[in-house]
Design a binder for these strands. Structure first.
Lengths: 217, 217
DNA sequence: TCCAGCTTGGGAAATTTTCCCAACGAACCT
DNA sequence: AGGTTCGTTGGGAAAATTTCCCAAGCTGGA
């Protein structure tokens, strides 16, 4: 079940854009000891390819249609704790990065990074380190300086779930039905979420939810 | 001011992600007569590179930080009507595609397209045709079948502007101040927009605005 | 045990939403 | 010209929601 080490480092490459995969494949195979053994363009195929090839490293874009890439990261991590998973993404928000590491990623590199950073990150996670690209490091560093963590830290589980559904477009009535609550309770949560987060309009709440990775689109 | 034809087809490649540019460069230069003469990673540099190299074709990602890529398309088009501009984008929404063509693009290909489609599109626009990738064709075809065009088609200018500001997170009061209207008028627009678009919550309005390219994130 | 914090909801005033309506001007058609 | 449509701007009034205060049950920790 562990990856073969005899002929270099086996890599599974996951991205939904063929051209982007070509770019990464080229960058990766420029390293003599790297070998892309499989590609996938969605989360389900990624998991299948992982089981079939048991690669030493999974390089994955978390932004894919259908099932979330983070879902795939979680699945892979639950199956193998030794596989190194490097996430690359368009996003450099701290919440996105944390979500990736929570899901089991070993590294996080933005798509804007230079090719060399990707290589360095892979070598780092192969040594057992955690790797992030320079721009991510800057974002996280700045965030750690600010007294306010993620806006979600101040919210309870129930509040987060209601914020998620609000951002998804659900009405108060639908949320109440979904969670078996009275509309009154949902209204109170709605208000509480706004005051706690300092958002004044529902539109701002949606943007917050998206920033925090609670909602997409 | 026109591109030299003697040594093949000169191409300017614009994308903010270095690795993505590498992927495209590889695909493009696999064609003997294609030659990438310059790259740029933002709208301003793209315009500068265009003026410096006068490429026959500009291949550009419209989704870039800072100034919109569409802005750059407009600038280039206003300077040269003979330059062929191929837009590629993550998005396949009809409104995005129309916006690109309105800005002066000759073709539109999604990043999810196979490399061959990109090549075909470039050859097509070089012949003076308009080119779109298969998935875009499907989206536009379906849209032309449905009686409802884009959700924005049914909205007036003022309504669109108010929707934009709502989605951006502005309060009724702020919008009224921004547009020199009474709050009552803004409220009426807000309601009218919801009924016209069939959206029930403000969160759904935000999602609609994002889908239509009125707002980001 | 007691406190703190999450969860759940009632109550009531303040505010907004909802839908009705009217008026003005511009564009368009005849 | 005259008429019609449509976008824009707002008033009014009932309905609904938001806002804020309060309380009770529950859980986990000091």
């Amino acid at each position: 079940m562990t990856a073969p080490q005899t002929q270099g480092i086996s890599i599974l490459l996951v991205d939904d854009h063929p051209v982007v995969r070509q770019g990464y494949r080229r960058v990766l195979e420029h390293q003599d000891d790297f070998h892309v053994v499989a590609e996938a363009d969605n989360a389900a195929d990624a998991y299948r390819a992982f089981k079939a090839h048991a690669p030493a490293v999974v390089v994955m874009d978390v932004l894919m249609p259908g099932a979330s890439g983070l879902e795939a990261v979680r699945n892979i991590r639950s199956r193998s704790s030794s596989t190194r998973i490097l996430v690359f993404s368009m996003h450099s928000e701290a919440t996105q990065v944390k979500a990736a590491f929570n899901a089991g990623a070993n590294g996080y590199v933005t798509k804007g990074s230079a090719p060399g950073e990707l290589i360095r990150a892979i070598r780092a996670i192969l040594r057992g380190e955690q790797a992030i690209s320079d721009d991510i490091a800057r974002v996280l560093a700045l965030e750690s300086l600010s007294p306010t963590g993620s806006a979600l830290d101040q919210l309870g589980e129930r509040e987060i779930e209601i914020l998620r559904q609000l951002a998804a477009g659900a009405t108060t009535e639908q949320i109440a039905a979904n969670l078996n609550l009275s509309m009154k309770t949902v209204q109170n949560y709605h208000y509480l979420i706004k005051t706690k987060t300092g958002m004044r309009t529902d539109a701002q709440l949606v943007r917050l939810a998206v920033e925090c990775g609670l909602a997409s689109l």
